[in-house]
Design a protein around this nucleic acid. Structure first.
Length: 782
DNA sequence: CAGTGAGCGAGCTTCCGCTTGACTT
């Protein structure tokens, strides 16, 4: 019979705490929330003060039974969920569901997982803060109302199975609007002028000094005039200034900054980072990975201090306390940091090792001294002009935290910014130029969001929480509102003028600009849904909506406002708009655009979103003849497709001609364009377009496919006809009973015996459960 | 991953935030 039961949110935490508390305490975990609004129904009783209808989800029933049992057996139950809004609600749901008696129940909180912090918490229990619980209920109910009233509007007006919500819809909006900015962006050209001077040195080899003109010139004519004026000019150093500068380290990691840095430095996706961090956490290597706090425990600061002094010396140490500045932060946990600062490296798979190293460095650097620099600026006078050339150089006087870690930047600025040291210069010194070059440069359009930069923006707006950043990004991709993709850059010509040896050379060069990788790009559906929501529900789609309701939740938490009043105020405004939107008769479908008239039938041609995505329609449903439909091809978009392109789509499936007395046709299937011949299908490679592919190209493809087919079977076995060794797209493999197996490296597929194959099958079947765990759950990628 | 090649006519879909295992596609 135990005296005490402590309930925390996370099982890994439970394990650690149990060690601190001794044998009188049993520590269990609630695994997050144990009760929620019913999954399927609306589950809010609007008529009765918005009473939420809660249920214990089926996968939590067993756990709740266990907790009930253990609670019954204990004298005191300590509710030790996190101190934030959600944590308080978890404590309250526990006390309700487990029917805990107030005199036997204590609510405790702690901010770091150390023995002293936990013992201290046990000494200072309190009661459940019902106002804070109410703030959570308001949050939960509001999100359900928004999500479950808005989504059906989309099903009716746009396309079934779509979704909308306070967080995801605004995330999509950011991406759609960025795309519009990019589309409307007009780049402006100007001329950047760089002079290279040669400074004599003691050893006879002159040193280059590069200096940039202090203004950009607007036109080619101006640039030419300028170079002309430089030809015979004198250049003298007019001013040299030296000033100290410093750089400070970035604060320790939060979920959002970890996701950004892991993407920039290690190339991990947001979901990948979280999975790896979870493993590190469960292995006890790092503190909790879902946090918005930059705070380090005193233990962490002290051990960092020891580590810095012992390995780098006292002058590298500077203790710093960071303040969380992001909107809506709740700081239930510490920053993400290594559990033991003395552990510089860990023994783990390489992804985990690299992420750990990043966290270790960031944490250590956050307690290190500033880097000290010396910036030198030399201003160079031009005798024939008023503009000046400016040369800047930088010398690192003391590396400080840079010895360990430097945060990466998001921007993709062109040109190299790594400043070098300037050669020795003196005032009034006359300079001789080697060359002066004017290069045409263009203003940059804004970049598309990456997963990580979107998270950064959401956090800045106070939208979403550390536990939802990764799921939100996966949701908007699953709903096909946005796609993660690459965009090839476009070629652009630019002009350079080079003054050298008294001559001016005029060149035209080309560069690739605007290429992007793994960026979030809105789909047609994303754009249509967003424009619709922004038009009819501007309040919900406002970037400040979340920030505003958070203020209301704060009032509720302070006990100044009953939560159902707050919800009532919102609902009375919101619901009528939903009703109107549902009943609204629209002249045409949301997002529909008329492209023109079909010259053959004289009927209107339009583009809109159908049940299966964007399509072209000829005619209207009111006509006697049913309208014709055709889906858009990959790479085509509703907003840019022309009447001509649209009409071409109706040529598919298209007959190319005869081959071996059988028809060859090209069409579009569920998996993209294909060639059909003699009852067989061949996929069209990306390099060929279904609208332009020729008969000869198609025959080539058919032949290649036959060739591949003929080589498919490497070996079969008389012992069992179901066993075959085959040659697939990814090399040879073993096929048995509809399943496929990898052939181990170093084995010659032709030499495989029946027994050897069966052995491989047996071994891999045994291995599957553990393998699957790692790769499973990746739905968002298409 | 290992080969696929619609059809809209019935019933279902959906939110955000806590937290980890389940489990054959």
């Amino acid at each position: 019979m135990q005296k005490n039961l402590v309930i925390v949110e996370s099982p890994a935490k439970a394990k650690t705490i149990e060690k601190f508390l001794g044998k009188d305490f049993k520590v269990l975990s609630s695994y997050g929330h144990i009760r929620d609004l019913k999954k399927k129904d609306f589950s809010i009783d609007i008529e009765h003060n918005y009473t939420p209808i809660y249920e214990i989800p089926s996968d939590k029933k067993k756990l709740v039974d266990t907790l009930k049992d253990e609670a019954k057996k204990s004298e005191t139950v300590w509710l030790a969920s996190d101190e934030d809004r959600e944590g308080e609600a978890i404590a309250w749901h526990l006390s309700e569901v487990l029917k805990l008696k107030p005199e036997h129940t204590k609510r405790i909180v702690f901010h770091e997982i150390t023995q002293s912090a936990i013992l201290n918490a046990i000494e200072n229990p309190r009661a459940i803060d019902i106002n804070r619980v109410d703030a959570q209920q308001a949050r939960r109910v509001l999100d359900r109302i928004v999500g479950f009233e808005l989504s059906p509007v989309l099903w009716k007006k746009v396309k079934p199975a779509l979704s909308a919500g306070r967080v995801q819809s605004v995330a999509v909006r950011l991406i759609v609007e960025r795309e519009k900015e990019i589309k409307n962006f007009i780049s402006e050209a100007s001329y950047r002028i760089i002079a290279t001077f040669l400074i004599p040195s003691e050893n006879g080899n002159p040193i280059e000094l590069k200096a940039e003109l202090n203004k950009r010139l607007k036109t080619k004519e101006e640039a030419l005039n300028f170079l002309e004026a430089c030809r015979q000019a004198n250049f003298t150093i007019e001013d040299i200034s030296v000033r100290p500068a410093k750089k400070s380290p970035a604060p320790p990691f939060t979920t959002s900054t970890l996701q950004q840095e892991a993407a920039r430095k290690l190339g991990y996706s947001v979901a990948q980072t979280m999975m790896i961090a979870q493993r590190l956490y469960e292995s006890g290597f790092i503190t909790y990975m879902r946090t918005d706090s930059v705070n380090l425990s005193s233990l962490a600061i002290n051990t960092s201090k020891e580590e810095i002094i012992s390995s780098l010396g006292e002058k590298y140490l500077k203790i710093r306390h960071y303040q969380t500045k992001s909107k809506g932060a709740q700081e239930a946990h510490e920053a993400i940091r290594p559990t033991y600062m003395s552990q510089k490296e860990i023994d783990a798979p390489s992804q985990e090792r690299r992420l750990y190293e990043l966290i270790w460095k960031r944490t250590i650097a956050s307690q290190m001294s500033d880097a000290e620099l010396e910036k030198t600026t030399a201003v160079i006078n031009i005798s024939s002009r008023n503009e000046k050339f400016v040369a800047t150089g930088e010398v690192l006087k003391f590396d400080g935290f840079l010895k360990v870690y430097l945060e990466s930047q998001d921007d993709e600025n062109e040109g190299e910014n790594n400043e070098k040291m300037l050669p020795p210069l003196s005032l009034k010194q006359e300079l001789k130029y080697n060359d002066i070059e004017a290069t045409e440069r263009f203003t940059q359009r804004p970049p598309r969001y990456t997963e990580a930069s979107l998270v950064h923006k959401l956090e800045e707006l106070g939208i979403g929480r550390p536990s939802t950043y990764a799921p939100t990004i996966s949701t908007i991709q699953q709903r096909e509102y946005v796609e993660k993709g690459d965009r090839e850059g476009t070629e652009r010509k630019y002009n350079t003028l080079l003054l050298k040896n008294g001559n001016i050379k005029d060149c035209t060069k080309t560069e690739i600009t605007g290429a992007e990788k793994a960026k979030l790009i809105p789909t047609d559906i994303g754009i249509v849904v967003n424009d619709f929501l922004v038009q009819y529900f501007p309040d919900i789609m406002d970037y400040n909506f979340t920030a505003n309701v958070e203020q209301t939740f704060d009032h509720i938490a302070e006990g100044k406002l009953p939560w159902s009043n707050a919800i009532d105020q919102f609902y009375k405004l919101f619901h009528p708009v939903v009703k109107d939107a549902l009943e609204m008769k629209m002249e045409h479908k949301v997002g529909e655009r008329i492209l023109g008239t079909d010259p053959k039938s004289g009927k209107p041609v339009s583009v809109k979103i159908g049940r299966f995505g964007p399509l072209i329609q000829i005619g209207t449903p009111d006509d006697e003849e049913k309208p014709q439909f055709a889906s858009l091809l990959k790479g085509q978009s509703m907003s840019t497709i022309t009447l001509e392109e649209a009409l071409k789509l109706f040529d598919l499936p298209r007959t190319l001609g005869d081959y071996e007395n059988k028809l060859v046709s090209v069409g579009i299937g569920r998996f993209g364009p294909y060639i059909r011949h003699d009852g067989k299908y061949v996929s069209l490679p990306k390099t060929l377009e279904p609208l332009s592919v020729t008969l000869d190209e198609a025959i080539e493809l058919i032949k290649a496919k036959r060739e591949q087919e003929s080589q498919r079977l490497i070996k079969s076995f008389p012992e069992d006809s179901e066993l075959e060794v085959l040659n697939g797209r990814y090399g040879p493999y073993i096929a048995y009973k509809k399943k496929n197996y990898k052939i181990p490296k170093g084995t010659e597929p032709k030499e495989l015996s029946f027994d050897a194959c069966m052995q491989i099958i047996k071994e891999s079947d045994e291995k599957i459960p553990s393998e699957k765990k790692r790769t499973g759950r990746k739905k968002a990628s298409k």
